[in-house]
Design a protein around this nucleic acid. Structure first.
Ligand code: MN
Ligand code: MN
Ligand code: ZN
Ligand code: ZN
Lengths: 139, 139
DNA sequence: TTCCTTATTGCAACTTTTTACAGTAGTATG
DNA sequence: CATACTACTGTAAAAAGTTGCAATAAGGAA
């Protein structure tokens, strides 16, 4: 739990404050080592900080994602999950069996540059989800 | 409203049935000419078929998207919208001002091929959303 | 330490989305 | 037509996510 205090400087740098609620939420995500849904975060973080409420969890996850401390991923049907922002990557999900794999950002760079010069948008290159059939499910 | 009957063969080909509920939903999407949220579809389709219920709308939108009659788009924060599946395209959304533009699939083809040979996944190349800053919001 | 500013939280009410299951109604077939 | 099969729908209830607002508490300054 104290490990989460290490995020205080990053928060402060973004104009955010460190609170026990945010400590609990960051701690949960820190130890999960993967993607968690808001509900999962809520249930687990409550164990460490029982008075935590849902609105706080949803707001915190959104705020921390906006400030790039977390990554949000859309995993289909409007489901959203979060993880600590560490390596830059994207996801491929099999919509037959659900198997998910990560891919580095590197192969995307060319496309991103093309899109940027084509549209004038400056893309933030983060955490896009693609769907398809994994090798097992293609037969 | 009767225009929606034209989708019956496509439904049938996928093992689905044409019902008055689906007629109403397809009709709404057909005349909207853009992306609608499930709630918007529900409210509008009720005008044409007042006994329509929410579970039917959510199920129908998912089913029709799965069978490729509709496209689902994740537009951030777990929000999802649907449109009739016509041209193949993707979206760029400005997360400052919300301005959304379409881009053709063509420039994605090379990347998709790379990812497929890299991962063994067969990607379905549909309707991905990217976020960034539009030209106006970059200053 | 104390004070001040304002970011953050909890509360209460609300909206949206999901679930399980029993009843209904497309549609193919004779 | 009449029948049978089963995809589809509505109901009722729960779960998940959202909103506005008043009270609280970080954390910088005095
Ligand atoms: Mn990830
Ligand atoms: Mn679209
Ligand atoms: Zn698979
Ligand atoms: Zn913009």
């Amino acid at each position: 739990m104290t490990c989460a205090i290490n995020y205080a400087p990053q928060l402060r740098a973004q104009g955010l404050r460190m609170t026990p609620q945010r400590m609990a939420i960051l701690h949960v995500l820190h130890h999960a080592g993967g993607h968690l849904s808001p509900t999962q975060v809520y249930k687990q973080a409550r164990k460490e900080f029982p008075s935590l409420t849902e609105p706080t969890v949803y707001r915190t996850l959104e705020d921390l994602a906006e400030k790039k401390l977390l990554l949000a991923a859309h995993i289909g049907n409007g489901k959203i999950v979060y993880e600590l922002a560490e390596g830059q990557h994207h996801h491929l999900i099999c919509h037959q069996c659900g198997k998910t794999i990560q891919v580095e950002h590197t192969p995307f760079k060319t496309l991103y540059r093309q899109l940027e010069s084509l549209t004038g948008y400056k893309l933030d290159s983060s955490h896009v989800t693609f769907f398809g059939l994994c090798s097992d499910c293609q037969s």
